Computed example of a mutant assay.
Amino acid sequence: MKKLVLHSTLVLWVCILALAGCSTAESTREATASDQAEARIIKHEFGESTIQGIPKRIVALEYSFVDSLATLGVTPVGIADDNKPDSIIAPIKEKLGEYTSVGSRYEVNFELISSLQPDLIIGDVSRHKEVYAQLNGIAPTLLLKSHGATYQENLSSFPVIAEAVGKKDEAEPLLQAHQANLDKLKASIPQDEQRTVLPAVVNAKGFFAHTSKSYAGSLLESLGLKDAIHSDEAYPQLTLEQLVEYNPDVLFLMKTPGEQTIIDEWSKNPLWGTISAVKNNNVYEVDRGVWSLSRGIISAETIVKEAIGQLYP
């Protein structure tokens, strides 16, 4: 009788183990199938990249991509912030968690990026195309438009980023909400507004106009404000004499707070006082980090609110 019970018990355990083995094998097959299903091909400015699953460790090599990720509720593990954490504007910073600075946007620190073990890198096609192979060797890399691109071109990067981080369905509602916010702000601009507007980065090296080919210039133009310069260049450097010739009615001077700029010198020149914007007290100092560096949905709405607040107090 004891032998029979022992035999029955052994048979039972064999069956249990066999079923467990089948279950494990089935789970493995399901996991493999799931992984294969999650492999996605993302098209970007430099080709296509295959992304496996949902990236959790993302490195962003431009501020505009940080803006996009923050809009989507994602904090990168690494950000190229030029070793200046304060260069990330407050409305974006408040949406981010902790991250590691990977240094300069201009000179990529491959060793530091690699140490973060990223599963996705997002770079700027104008800055990082020469090092794409090296970046892609660390993790799947997307190169998108940012520096030297217009507002609409920067905006076109947003749905690509959303798809890459598994938030494709959120992109369109967020873009629609963004457009609705801009339309509401735009409604406060008088239809008969005829003044010409010129945003420009000013520093100790010079005066760099941001035309309608730039982010800030094209954003203001999308509101119906007239660009003071018609140029194929995004950031032409102007002399004081050239600025006088263009004679903008409004100047938005993008600068780093506390920094000495060429305007300190120009303001002593009688020519400076002949510019319409200067004569009519329509010269506004604005934060370069907001107006020039960030280039995303959050920064766009911040810029428009500030511009309209200055122009129509």
Results as ranks from 00 to 15, higher is better:
29 R>A: 14
32 T>Y: 13
32 T>C: 07
33 A>H: 13
33 A>D: 13
34 S>Y: 12
34 S>Q: 12
35 D>I: 14
35 D>G: 02
36 Q>E: 14
37 A>Y: 01
37 A>P: 04
39 A>H: 11
40 R>D: 04
41 I>K: 07
42 I>K: 06
43 K>G: 10
45 E>L: 09
45 E>N: 13
45 E>A: 15
46 F>A: 15
47 G>I: 02
49 S>V: 11
49 S>H: 00
49 S>T: 14
50 T>V: 13
50 T>R: 14
51 I>M: 01
51 I>V: 12
51 I>G: 06
51 I>Q: 05
53 G>P: 08
56 K>L: 07
57 R>P: 03
57 R>F: 03
57 R>H: 11
58 I>E: 00
58 I>Q: 00
58 I>C: 02
58 I>S: 04
59 V>F: 06
59 V>L: 09
59 V>G: 10
60 A>L: 09
61 L>R: 07
64 S>P: 07
64 S>A: 13
64 S>W: 01
65 F>E: 03
65 F>H: 11
65 F>P: 00
66 V>I: 15
68 S>Q: 15
69 L>E: 08
70 A>S: 09
71 T>S: 13
74 V>Y: 10
74 V>C: 08
75 T>I: 09
76 P>H: 00
78 G>T: 08
79 I>S: 10
79 I>R: 06
80 A>P: 04
81 D>R: 12
83 N>M: 12
84 K>G: 06
84 K>L: 14
84 K>H: 08
86 D>L: 14
87 S>T: 09
88 I>P: 02
89 I>L: 10
90 A>G: 01
90 A>F: 08
90 A>M: 11
91 P>K: 03
91 P>F: 04
93 K>C: 09
93 K>P: 00
95 K>V: 15
95 K>N: 12
96 L>G: 06
96 L>Y: 08
98 E>W: 02
100 T>H: 13
100 T>S: 12
103 G>M: 06
103 G>N: 04
106 Y>F: 15
107 E>I: 15
109 N>C: 02
109 N>Y: 04
110 F>A: 03
110 F>Y: 11
110 F>G: 02
110 F>P: 04
112 L>I: 11
112 L>Q: 14
113 I>R: 08
113 I>H: 06
115 S>R: 10
115 S>L: 08
115 S>A: 14
115 S>V: 01
116 L>W: 00
116 L>T: 05
117 Q>L: 10
117 Q>E: 15
117 Q>V: 13
118 P>Q: 12
118 P>R: 03
118 P>M: 11
123 G>E: 12
123 G>I: 07
124 D>R: 01
125 V>L: 11
125 V>C: 00
126 S>P: 02
128 H>A: 09
128 H>N: 13
128 H>G: 03
129 K>N: 15
130 E>Q: 10
133 A>F: 15
133 A>P: 01
133 A>K: 09
134 Q>P: 02
135 L>K: 09
136 N>M: 05
137 G>S: 13
139 A>P: 05
139 A>M: 10
140 P>Q: 04
140 P>G: 06
141 T>P: 01
143 L>R: 07
144 L>F: 10
145 K>R: 10
145 K>C: 12
145 K>F: 05
147 H>P: 00
147 H>W: 15
147 H>S: 10
148 G>V: 13
148 G>R: 09
148 G>Q: 14
149 A>V: 06
150 T>F: 08
150 T>I: 12
151 Y>R: 07
151 Y>K: 09
152 Q>M: 05
153 E>W: 06
153 E>T: 10
153 E>M: 08
154 N>G: 15
155 L>Y: 01
